[in-house]
Amino acid sequence: MSTLEIKGLHVSVVTEEGAKEILRGVDLTINSGETHAIMGPNGSGKSTLAYSIAGHPKYTITSGSVTLDGADVLDMTVDERAKAGLFLAMQYPVEVPGVSVSNFLRTAVTAIRGEAPKVRTWVGEVKEAMSQLSMDPAFSERNVNEGFSGGEKKRHEILQMELLKPKIAILDETDSGLDVDALRIVSEGVNRVKTNQDLGIMLITHYTRILRYIKPDFVHVFAGGRIVEEGGPELATKLEENGYAEYVTA
């Protein structure tokens, strides 16, 4: 049982006009096995929340805390956060030319687990995870995210999540750019990891479409850099009908 606890989080970025505050006091607790949907309009700060937790250097934490099972996440380097059990599935996964998927996965898993996986079991593990995500085995010889379609990038993110076995995963707009089939495959992957590994999930999305496949336990409406309303799955239905208009004007 793990808990990610975010308290009073304020985050700024440096712009040409000086520091600009994006997150204005975020409070959120995610436990193992729970799925929290963070929904909000573009520019509300959803991705900033995701990247701040993962430790992207662009964002400055001005106040507040983030802990994972009591450990201070904000005090950790980016790789230490991953080792502690956090995972960020990115909206725009980065290309790494000349580095094959298989080399990348093996290096990452070795770093997270603290020892190189046994060759024999590792090959089977990757193969099975890839086949469950309907990925061609030849995929592992390609360079990381280079020339991947939108759907391939997202599947590759979920593949990593499956192999790295995090405690808490943040899925940043994982549904964007996916057609219906790819959305189903990726969602099934997320649900599989959630069931098998008792994963806690922060699911960031603009649209309710993905919530038909990944059922949230909690829905948080995000606007103006903080959570402005919270509820159960029924809140998503309301958002689907009314949109974010009432929150944006507030």
Binding site: P57, D79, R81, A82, F87, E95, F104
Partner: peptide, 23 residues
């Protein structure tokens, strides 16, 4: 690239080496 690799648990120095080897 460095952030992406580090967010998967790979330490900074190893991530740099990986990127340069890839290059």
């Amino acid at each position: 690239q460095l952030f992406y690799l580090m967010s998967r648990g790979i330490p900074a120095e190893q991530a740099r080496r990986l990127v340069i080897r890839g290059f």
